[in-house]
Design a protein around this nucleic acid. Structure first.
Lengths: 191, 191
DNA sequence: GGAGAATACATCGGAACCGATGTATTGCGA
DNA sequence: TCGCAATACATCGGTTCCGATGTATTCTCC
């Protein structure tokens, strides 16, 4: 008798979600080859978190292997031959699923959240879009403090480290701006 | 003749920097055991990006192996025995080095940047602190657009996708608030 | 007195990431 | 014409990351 069963749990790795989401999202609009895809991803999130080629190409392969996209080889317009990537039906479905049910970190981590937002229009049901925005709003409304004195959260005014004060100052400003935008957008989605 | 030499390049992995920085930063103040360290890291960045135990403990081991911290075993106050972690001289030096010369992504990625800010006071030279803040300021002043029409950046007003408009709206508000804080803090550091 | 949460650590395996490097071709400026 | 940048892809190795799981103790609530 084995001590435990060896299931293959198809662990959903939180960290890859963002890159794969971006690939699916861009291809949902139009087929692209890898190099162009890379330029668009770089424009979207590259200034904050660049994606290496050696990360992108394996990711494309994974998605292909999973049946979410297909490749067709074309003679290179200007250099080496291109692999034009086209989203499959399953790929489109998977994109919509990931947008409708983002993981917790897609909601909490600004980098990921922006990627979700960048493609949220592909979810054609406004109620589903609203639901996602409301999750983010709920997160922003959770009381979150960065620093504690024992169990008591410290406010920005209370400590003299100007850098830690800055963290709170900036986080608050961001939160206020985004909360406002979320409320406005939610209101306009309900028309 | 080998086609290439097999150097061991000591590749600096960008992604680990944040966690290790947080460990070094917290221990710089006072020795802690792993469990307490985890609670503090969770309070600092956990609401955005939680750290698994199975990430923290290996990280501690790495730092120990690198001679940046030392462990001493203590009988557990309430449960299992604790490993109290103490920063070595080399550890303090390394912390200051990482704070004074943050990698590009420590500057551009808000998550990492906040971690740098959280411990920047440990850099005792105000000029060095200023230099780090100025790097962030320079980054925020770079013209960065998320979406392009060919090569022309699109402003928030130009496209009708409300979610992409939101990204720009929020990013702008954040950038303005932080720029303002950076300028104020830089001014006060120069006194 | 039994269940469950909190304390406190640890390992293993699978997956994803990145830097370095390689291979070609085309276009452009010096 | 020489070299460099851009286009366009690919692999390898090393490292980190995480979920699942395990072990053991103590405290609290029912």
């Amino acid at each position: 008798m084995p001590l435990r069963e060896h299931r293959t749990p198809r662990v959903v790795r939180e960290d890859v979600a963002m890159l794969e989401l971006a690939i699916l999202g861009f291809l949902y609009d139009t087929p692209l080859h890898g190099y162009e895809l890379r330029k668009r991803i770089t424009a979207l999130t590259g200034h904050v978190r660049p994606i290496a080629e050696s990360t992108l190409y394996p990711a494309i392969k994974r998605l292909e292997k999973a049946g979410l996209l297909e490749r067709t080889t074309e003679p290179g317009a200007v250099a080496a031959p291109r692999h034009v990537l086209t989203l499959t039906g399953a790929g489109g479905q998977e994109l919509r699923r990931r947008l409708a049910e983002p993981g917790r970190r897609d909601i909490t981590d600004e980098n990921r959240w922006f990627t979700v937002l960048a493609f949220l229009r592909h979810l054609d049901d406004p109620a589903a879009q609203s639901a996602v925005l409301r999750r983010r709003l709920a997160f922003l409304e959770e009381p979150a403090s960065f620093f504690y004195d024992g169990d008591r959260p410290l406010s920005a005014e209370e400590f003299d480290d100007p850098f830690r004060r800055g963290i709170l100052t900036i986080a608050r400003a961001t939160s206020r701006a985004e909360t406002r935008w979320l409320r406005e957008t939610l209101a306009s989605l309900e028309d």
